[in-house]
Amino acid sequence: MSSNSPPPTFQDPPEYTFPAHRLNTILRDSSKQPIVLVACGSFSPVTYLHLRMFEMARDYVRHNTDFEIVGGYLSPVSDQYKKPGLLAAAHRVHMCNLAAEQTSNWLMVDPWEAFQSYQRTAVVLDHFDYEINTRLGGVTTADGEQRHVRVMLLAGSDLIATMSEPGVWSEPDLDHILGRYGVLIIERAGADMDQAIDSLARWRGNIHLIHQLIQNDVSSTKVRLFLRRGLSVRYLLPSPVVDYIEEHGLYVDDGAPASAEKEKEKGKGKAKEATSSSLKVPS
């Protein structure tokens, strides 16, 4: 987007306010480039791995780049995304807020994407860029110099795999996401990144691969399956999220048994979870 381009227009959900209460508006190190991490995904439900991704990214940025993270956001996808197992946005946003507010001191949840029609990832990143740099004016150094904040996508390695598949993503969107913003990719078990990265060679300088030093393969899909079988998911998710799921009886009201005993008694088979190639962070 050139400096002569008109400002973008965005349709905000009713009573929407951009969350900035944890955004660090003063750059600690003036030699660094300020960045904000944005994770787009279903978060149905949010897991410890979703939160852990931000911590791994923060370690990577601190030790391997000239960036300084000034904020981190979870952006739950709209209900219009129509992904199997996708709980209503109100529940997903609330669980993300519980996880961010009660287990972190720097993460935030932006409901802008969740409470409207489906928005492409490129548009979501534009929204963050507009809110942080145009409306809030970016950040300042200790000396009062104004700095533009670079927005970067945070995702699992399976996202890069979909980006390297012909026809899954549009070329303009790939160029917008990887060229204008950039992405930090968290390695996931069993993913072959070399071939995927080779297919995206033109943007290689904006793709940062982060290896998991402690492997974690917890996924929302597995958590939903556990819940439908009546199995415990405690210590796989933040405790406030587990409490919320139990209080509202989530993920067990779709005809699947609410407990292992009921499953055995009724002789029902294992719940099957449909999956699809997502243009968001797969969950």
Rank of each mutant, 00 (worst) to 15 (best):
P7G: 00
T9E: 15
P13T: 12
P13F: 07
A20Q: 14
R22T: 07
L23H: 10
N24T: 12
L27H: 02
L27V: 02
R28N: 13
S31I: 00
K32S: 09
V36G: 02
V38Y: 12
F43L: 06
S44M: 10
T47A: 03
Y48T: 10
M53P: 05
F54L: 06
M56W: 14
A57V: 04
E68W: 12
G71W: 12
S75Q: 08
S75T: 11
S75H: 10
G85Y: 10
G85T: 04
L87N: 11
H94T: 06
C96G: 09
N97Y: 02
L98V: 05
A100D: 01
A100C: 14
S104P: 07
S104V: 02
S104T: 15
W106G: 06
W106N: 10
L107R: 11
D110E: 05
P111S: 09
A114H: 05
Q119I: 11
A122S: 12
F128T: 00
F128W: 10
I132Y: 07
G137L: 11
V139Y: 03
T140V: 13
V149H: 14
V151L: 12
A155S: 07
I160K: 01
S164R: 04
E165A: 12
P166S: 11
W169K: 02
S170L: 14
E171R: 15
I177A: 03
G182H: 01
V183L: 06
A189W: 13
A189P: 05
A189T: 11
A189F: 13
D194M: 14
D194S: 12
L200E: 01
A201W: 01
G205P: 02
N206M: 06
I210Y: 06
Q215T: 15
N216M: 13
N216V: 14
T221C: 08
F226D: 14
L227I: 04
L237I: 10
P238E: 04
S239P: 08
D243M: 02
Y244N: 04
Y244M: 09
I245A: 11
G249I: 11
G249M: 09
Y251R: 04
Y251A: 01
D253H: 08
D253E: 12
A256M: 11
P257Y: 09
P257H: 05
E263Q: 15
K264P: 00
E273T: 10
A274N: 08
S276I: 13
S277M: 09
V281M: 13
